[in-house]
Amino acid sequence: MTLGDDRHGHGPAATAQTVPHTRATLAADLRSLGVRPGSVLLVHASLRALGYVCGGAHTVALALRDALGPEGTLVVPTHTSENSDPEQWRNPPVPEHWWPIIRAEMPGFDPAVTPSTFMGALAELVRTSPGAHRSDHPQVSFAAVGPAAASIVAEHPLADMLGETSPLARLYERSADVLLLGVGHDSNTSLHLAEYRRADPPRERLGAAVRTAGGGRRWVWWTDVALDSDIFPRLGADLEATGAVRLGRVGAGPARLMDQRAVVDFALHWLTGDRRGSTG
């Protein structure tokens, strides 16, 4: 591998920088943005946006832990969206004759083993870190490290998967913060909690493969709220217009820090027609 090998995230990002981003510089950026020692922080991240980081995802995780301090808890989404009913796949869809094969052969979700999908390198690093805890939902699990980790991810039921009995609600109870690191509000999972809090939200049937106690697997079905993240960029823009989001940079990437309660409360007003919203 050479320094210019773009497949490993080097090259253009590295040559455009005067110095590499490091654990110390990223931690300083996070503190300047407003990450609080001792807080609970839910992070959604695309490391590519940060530029060249000496040590990659490992360095970013260390910088986050430094900014949070020993009493802080770091939480990441470790979703496994591929473990779902193939009939509902749209990006891209798969042929109908594939559906029974996928349902029969998809490995059963095992929180200790199953990797997250499309969540990025930081989520995977936190998931596999010593002392990490992960919730056991086969599609929308969360992983966490820190003093509050176990209580945040405990007992994640199939139905109400991002609602009042989910880790998102436990984050709300703990006045957690949300950090969007190099990503936009389309990745802001906390907005889904507001969808659950609407009166009589639309619902759909969902399915996933789970690991059984004997090491086998089975397919499970449940009914849950039909989610719509397509509206989140507009919702997020209106939220930012209220001044409730702290904007800055971490490394070379855009960063957004916000109080999760304010986010969810505003989103609920927005979704139910009061576009003036509320920030607490």
Rank of each mutant, 00 (worst) to 15 (best):
F109W: 00
D110V: 01
P111Q: 01
P111C: 02
A112T: 07
P115K: 02
S116Q: 01
S116V: 00
T117G: 02
F118L: 07
A121C: 00
A123K: 00
A123P: 02
E124Y: 01
L125D: 09
L125E: 09
L125S: 04
L125M: 05
R127H: 10
T128G: 07
S129H: 10
S129N: 03
G131Y: 05
A132V: 10
S135D: 05
S135M: 04
D136L: 05
D136A: 15
P138K: 02
Q139K: 08
Q139V: 14
V140S: 04
V140G: 03
V140Y: 06
S141D: 04
S141I: 07
A143G: 07
V145N: 06
V145R: 06
V145F: 08
V145E: 07
A149K: 05
S151L: 12
I152W: 08
E155N: 15
P157M: 10
P157R: 13
L158R: 04
A159L: 11
D160S: 15
D160W: 11
G163H: 11
E164P: 13
P167V: 05
P167T: 05
L168W: 14
L168I: 04
A169S: 14
L171S: 02
L171P: 10
S175R: 13
S175C: 09
A176I: 12
V178I: 15
V178N: 13
G182W: 10
G182N: 09
G182R: 09
